[in-house]
C-alpha cells in the first residue's frame, strides 16, 4: 500500500512533465512535420506572451490570490503605448509608459486586495471590466496599428537572425522570476505567505507588503506581455487579451501551481504548463480540427488542470490529517 501511495505521489508531482511528453509524442505521430525546428520555433514564439502571463499569475497564485485582470491590463497598457507611438513618440519611451500603466494597474489591484480587503477574484474582476472599458474609451473601440519598426524589428525580428526576440524576452523573464523566487528573501516569503498567512504574520513577515508586491509585479509583467503580443500581431483590436487570463491560469496550474497557494514554480512549472497549452493549440491546427471545437478542447484542458489541482489539494489535506493512534 505504501508503494502504491509513493507511486501516486510521484505521478502527481511529475504530472506536468509526463503530460508534456505524451502530448508532444502524440501530435508527432499524427502530423508529419511536427518534429521540425520550424514548428518548435513557432510553438515557442507563440507561447511567449502566454508564458509571461503564466509567470505573472504563478507569482500571484503562490500567495493564494488570483488576478484575472491581466488580459484587460495587457489591452489597456498596449493600447496606450500604441496610441503614443502613432503620435510619433519614440519606441523606448512608450515602452516605459506601457510598463508604468501596468505598474499602476497592479497598484490599484493591490490597493483593493490589501487595503480594502476585497477578495482577489472580485477585486480583479472589477478592475478587469473597468480596465477594458477604459481602454475602449481611449481607443474609441478602433484598432490601433503599431509602427513597422516595432513589428519587424521586435515582433518578428530575431537576435542574430536566429532566435526570435519574443522568445528571448519570455525566457529571460522566466529566468529572472525563477531566480527571484528561489534565491531572494522576498521570493521565499511569497511561498511562506501562501502556505499560511497567519503563521507568516507570527513569524514577523510583512504579509501586506508581500501581497502588494505580488500584484504590482503581476501588473508590470502583464504590460510586458501586452507589448510583446501586440508587436507579434501588429495591431491591437477590441478583442485583444480577451480570455488570456484563463489561458495563463490554466498554464500555471497545469505546470503544478496550486490554487490554494504555497506550491508551484515558474521554472519548470509555468514554462512546461505554457508549452503544453500552446502545443495543444498548435496541434489542433495541425490536425485541422474544426475551429469551433478548439475552444471546447481548450476548456477541457482548463478543467483538467483545475481537477488536477483539487486532487493535489486533497492529497495535501490527507497528509495534514493528524494521526491520533496507529494500529
Amino acid at each position: 500500500m505504501r508503494d502504491n501511495r509513493n507511486l501516486k505521489l510521484l505521478v502527481l508531482k511529475r504530472f506536468p512533465i509526463i503530460l508534456f511528453v505524451i502530448i508532444f509524442i502524440v501530435f508527432g505521430i499524427f502530423s508529419s512535420n511536427w518534429f521540425t525546428l520550424k514548428n518548435l520555433e513557432n510553438i515557442l514564439s507563440q507561447s511567449s506572451y502566454i508564458g509571461i502571463l503564466a509567470t505573472a499569475i504563478t507569482i500571484v497564485l503562490l500567495t493564494g490570490g488570483v488576478d484575472i485582470s491581466i488580459g484587460a491590463n495587457m489591452f489597456l497598457s498596449a493600447s496606450i503605448a500604441g496610441l503614443l507611438m502613432a503620435k510619433g513618440w519614440p519606441i523606448w519611451t512608450t515602452v516605459i509608459v506601457c510598463l508604468l500603466v501596468g505598474f499602476l494597474y497592479g497598484c490599484v489591484n493591490s490597493f483593493l486586495v490589501v487595503k480594502l480587503k476585497i477578495v482577489p477574484f472580485i477585486a480583479t474582476l472589477g478592475t478587469m471590466t473597468a480596465g477594458r472599458g477604459l481602454a475602449l474609451i481611449i481607443t474609441k473601440s478602433a484598432a490601433v496599428s503599431l509602427p513597422k519598426e516595432l513589428i519587424s524589428g521586435f515582433g518578428s525580428g530575431k537576435l542574430l537572425g536566429i532566435i526570435p526576440y519574443p522568445i528571448i524576452v519570455f525566457l529571460l523573464i522566466i529566468l529572472v522570476a525563477a531566480i527571484f523566487l528561489k534565491y531572494v528573501p522576498i521570493g521565499r516569503r511569497i511561498y511562506a505567505v501562501g502556505n499560511d498567512a497567519e503563521c507568516a504574520k507570527k513569524a514577523g513577515i510583512n504579509v501586506k507588503r508581500t501581497i502588494s508586491f505580488v500584484y504590482i509585479t503581476c501588473g508590470v509583467l502583464a504590460a510586458i506581455a501586452g507589448i510583446v503580443s501586440a508587436a507579434q500581431i501588429g495591431n491591437i483590436n477590441a478583442g485583444f487579451g480577451v480570455g488570456y487570463e484563463f489561458n495563463a491560469i490554466a498554464a500555471s496550474v497545469l505546470g503544478g501551481t496550486s490554487m490554494i497557494g504555497g506550491i508551484g514554480t515558474v521554472f519548470p512549472g509555468a514554462l512546461i504548463g505554457t508549452l503544453i497549452m500552446q502545443m495543444i493549440q498548435a496541434g489542433l491546427v495541425y490536425m485541422q480540427v474544426d475551429l469551433y471545437i478548439q475552444p471546447i478542447v481548450n476548456a477541457a484542458i482548463i478543467l483538467l488542470a483545475v481537477f488536477l489541482d483539487s486532487v493535489r489539494t486533497n492529497y495535501i489535506h490527507k497528509l495534514d490529517a493528524r494521526n491520533i493512534r496507529v494500529d
Partner: peptide
C-alpha cells in the same frame, strides 16, 4: 511551520543571510 518550505527557510524566513552586496541568499 511552513510545510511547503525547507527547514532552512523556516529557520531564516524573516532573517535570511545574504551574500554581501547582493540581494541573493
Amino acid at each position: 511551520l511552513f510545510n511547503n518550505l525547507s527547514i532552512l527557510d523556516n529557520m531564516y524566513i524573516n532573517s535570511y543571510k545574504r551574500i554581501p552586496g547582493t540581494p541573493f541568499l
